[in-house]
Design a protein around this nucleic acid. Sequence first.
DNA 1: AGTGTGACTTGGG
DNA 2: ACCCAAGCCACAC
Length: 105
Amino acid sequence: MNPFTARVIDIIKGIPAGCVMTYGQIAELAGSPRGARQVVRILHSMSRAYELPWHRVVNAKGEIAIKDDESRFMQLVYLRDEGVIPGNDGLIDLSRYRYVPVKSK
DNA sequence: AGTGTGACTTGGG
DNA sequence: ACCCAAGCCACAC
């Protein structure tokens, strides 16, 4: 597995309950500013094997990006359970829930 | 090797 | 605020 993938997995595992991160944000932290789609791919293929909190990842608008209806619903349930409540328009307030990892040296 | 695709993003109209 | 087009990159056919 390449280092980018490893970092993405590591970052996602580090998202605390009650917070969310965007695909682009994760890709950037992992060292690939344009790698949002790779993050998507990783979630698809590794979320189960690595027990990743995939439900804490949303798109740049703060909405559930997943297409599959059932999974989308599950994500909503998980988030609500952790205290992340979408607004009337179904959007998650990123300025409020977005997780920004602390840069430790 | 060429083409299509996706749980994305950003910029413009 | 909404819709669209183009950019993006790794992977499946």
